[in-house]
Design a protein around this nucleic acid. Structure first.
Lengths: 193, 193
DNA sequence: GCCCTTGTGGCACCCAGTGCCATAACGTGA
DNA sequence: TCACGTTATGGCACTGGGTGCCACAAGGGC
């Protein structure tokens, strides 16, 4: 499935390619109106194979999320010891959610689906939890607090709330970049700890 | 199904009773390991009838949520014109999430399940959206801003983030009330607008 | 050519959710 | 007491997501 570097049958497609086919179909016909069979058929693979690339139908749209979370965690880990927690989180979120040039269209259509379709919005919790956990862990470490203290938990939720706020605001306005919306939301929501 | 006040076959159970049976089974055997058939059988009804009381399996645990949201909206609507937005939201959330005496056990077990089981946490988005919308609408009205401005959207997310933070903190600590956790989380997370 | 390794996909199955419909159990009026 | 409208029940069949099992395809190394 990942084109084993030594031997084995070569994969017939890739997660990236499959993800693009899925997004296209979901946008065209609607998420609920598109079955996994439809996606698999459009990609020229069997239904069973789809579930080897993605554990659920929804995950086809969250292929990039683990990367985002990793960038967030890396940015936080790279913070200087004298950088305040609030500033470090602000910077890390902006870094992790920076839209690569040329991918605005893909990111926007994907975000619109994820925030609009109930099933997808609900599924996002998987990624969102990892997002919160990364920020909460960093905050707890830096402040010398236990992981279940109110402050780190709250900061984790604040970072997530800001990210969601920014995406919603970005999608509801014509001009403007995601980074601008993110800056405004983070300023409003990140507590000063 | 609601024991029609004029004629008709009387309902064989109630949403409340069904909800209690479901919670008991979910706690005993686990949510994913309990099928709707199991719940229906334990309640002495048919599977088809279960779906007349609740649209989904998960909704059996969210029977009280519409009431919570209504209390939140009512509390916000009752705010004096000179009460600051932040104070009004703080008060309304505390009022809406006040635990009725004698129901601590039920509320705690239910919250533990909802926050722990991925499928339930994901499903909560339905209720959470209404929660955010109530706060965002109030904020927009009071500040004379459009509904898609960053500020009301952010305040809605902040109120939700505080509620979730408080529940998590409440469940992870032995003593302490939900109200105490809520107060701390709201103080940290509600922006001063 | 044989073997090992890795990806594919068909088949059967479980479970959530839905539309359709027959029927049970009430109240009311004749 | 019987017919009638009303409301709730629940069986049946079907769609669609997700999974375990397994036969097979397609590469590399020897």
């Amino acid at each position: 499935m990942t084109t084993g570097e030594r031997g084995g049958r070569p994969a017939v497609t890739s997660a990236q390619e499959l993800s693009e086919v899925a997004l296209r179909l979901f946008v065209e016909r609607g998420y609920d109106e598109t079955s996994v069979d439809d996606v698999a058929a459009a990609a020229g693979i069997g239904r069973r194979t789809f579930f080897r690339y993605f554990p659920t139908k929804a995950d086809a749209l969250f292929a990039a999320s683990p990367g985002d979370v990793r960038r967030l965690a890396d940015s936080l880990a790279a913070a200087d010891a004298d950088e305040p927690v609030r500033a470090a989180v602000r910077r890390a979120v902006l870094t992790a959610l920076a839209v690569p040039p040329g991918e605005e269209g893909w990111v926007r259509r994907r975000a619109l689906l994820v925030l609009t379709v109930p099933a997808l919005r609900a599924h996002g919790h998987t990624t969102f939890d990892a997002w919160r956990a990364a920020v909460a862990g960093f905050t707890a470490r830096r402040l010398g607090l236990p992981l279940d203290d109110v402050v780190p938990v709250a900061v984790g939720h604040a970072a997530l709330a800001a990210s969601l706020t920014a995406h919603e605001h970005w999608l509801s306005t014509a001009g403007g970049t995601l980074a601008e919306s993110l800056a405004a939301a983070l300023d409003l929501l990140l507590p000063d700890v």
